[in-house]
Amino acid sequence: MTTIPMEYGILLAAILFSIGLVGVLVRRNIMFILMSLEVMFNAAGLAFIVAGSRWGQGDGQIMFLLILTLAAAEVGVGLGLVLQMYRRFRTLDADALSGMRG
């Protein structure tokens, strides 16, 4: 039995998630956006772990493992896309890619 109240963990997850959201919305550099996305993933994983610990089941950690896998694949593909973008547009500005305007 741990002595940490579960709500605190969830609260921490919520705070981290919101901070990551701010980062996604504020930063223009695509690398920072990806980093903030990682922060949000991490926060979600924290929530799962806390839930799993609360109920004493391993499902939370397994979910976290799957999230990890997902994050890894996503980062791989995402960074590949960033490289392509840099090659074509010579910039990492997310707003430069606005061909879908209108």
């Binding site: 919305l25 956006i33 997310a94 707003d95 606005s98 209108g102």
Partner: peptide, 17 residues
Amino acid sequence: VSRTQTGQLRWYAAGMM
């Protein structure tokens, strides 16, 4: 309405949020 389609990633993310 077409002015809401800015083509910018962060705008769409903000919309989703």
